[in-house]
């Protein structure tokens, strides 16, 4: 049985189409990533899947249960960590945890094994009010509260937004451990570099899924050839290369430029010649395989 199956989900807010015919499925025990910028419709999709909002069209099932008619059963077997406001700021760490456990008719003691690894890191602060915790500790507590009733599927809406690179990689290590304990994880993020940490992913933009599959499948479907260009005068070079015949796109990626070209219209040698003629100094050029971010940018331009 699939952990999540949704089909043809659409949602409008007045004139704005927030989601357009979204279909996807998630296998049990997967980490599935929903990757896209702010305003893409990620949170709306979360609300529909977690039975907090009705779709205008389409249908969905969580662990075989219908997101409309079986909403109350679904709520018992999912954990949901929304982007914000998931904790009671004026309750202590321990009180928050007990409150969520009680809501689901269980106790912290009964399910301590599920949360132990994460909770042990914040337990020294158990009497501190949630509002007084650091961002990293809040995140851990929110995760414990979403896990305290041993859910089958865990929904995490942008858990790493605004979090620094070091804390982000720690968080993903926690997700990997949660998955190993048998929980299906559905997680959204605006950070493209987190894509490779998912088993499968869907890329969303403007309310539409623009690509889906394993990271490897998405990368192998990239239709162009890609060059990495490094040089001293990157910005003038970028402007120049965009004007070059056969160049599909050219953008900076860290210290280098990524240049996509259509192999049917030009060859790498033509681009190398354009770089030499530009008089912008020596450049290091090599053919590279695309990353998820290259793929997202290409799919978003269609």
């Amino acid at each position: 049985m699939k952990a999540i199956e949704i089909s043809g989900i659409s949602k409008n807010y007045g004139q704005v189409a927030a989601l357009r015919e979204i279909s996807l499925d998630v296998d049990s025990g997967e980490i599935f990533g929903l990757i896209g910028p702010d305003g893409a419709g990620k949170t709306t999709l979360f609300r529909i899947m977690t039975t907090l909002m009705l779709a205008d069209a389409g249908s969905g099932k969580i662990c075989g249960m219908d997101i409309v008619s079986d909403y109350s059963r679904i709520r018992k077997i999912i954990g949901y960590m929304p982007g914000r406001f998931s904790l009671y700021q004026d309750l202590s760490v321990r009180e928050n945890l007990e409150y969520f456990a009680t809501l689901f008719g269980t106790t912290v003691e009964k399910n301590y094994g599920t949360i132990r690894e994460i909770y042990s890191q914040i337990e020294p602060f158990r009497d501190r009010k949630a509002g007084k915790l650091s961002g990293g500790m809040k995140q851990k507590l929110a995760l414990c509260c979403a896990l305290v009733h041993k859910p089958s599927v865990l929904f995490l809406d942008e858990p790493t937004t605004g979090v620094d690179a070091v804390s982000r990689s720690e968080f993903w290590k926690m997700l990997e451990r949660i998955r190993k304990s048998g929980v299906t994880v559905f997680v959204s993020t605006p950070y493209m570099d987190e894509a490779s940490l998912c088993d499968r992913l869907a890329m969303i933009r403007g309310g539409e899924i623009i690509g889906t599959g394993t990271p490897e499948q998405i990368i192998s479907a990239y239709p162009y050839r890609l060059l990495s260009v490094e040089g001293d005068r990157i910005y003038p070079l970028l402007k120049r290369l965009r004007e070059t015949e056969g160049v599909i796109s050219c953008f900076s990626f860290g210290a280098s430029l990524h240049l996509a070209y259509d192999p049917e219209k030009t060859e790498a040698s033509g681009i190398l010649a354009a770089i030499r003629e530009s008089g912008l100094g020596d450049c290091k050029v090599r053919e590279i395989s695309p990353g998820i971010e290259d793929c997202f940018m290409q799919l978003a331009r269609k």
Partner: peptide, 10 residues
């Protein structure tokens, strides 16, 4: 640039 898509960010 928090939260914007990769092309807009660049």
């Amino acid at each position: 640039t928090g939260g914007v898509d990769p092309e807009t960010r660049r």
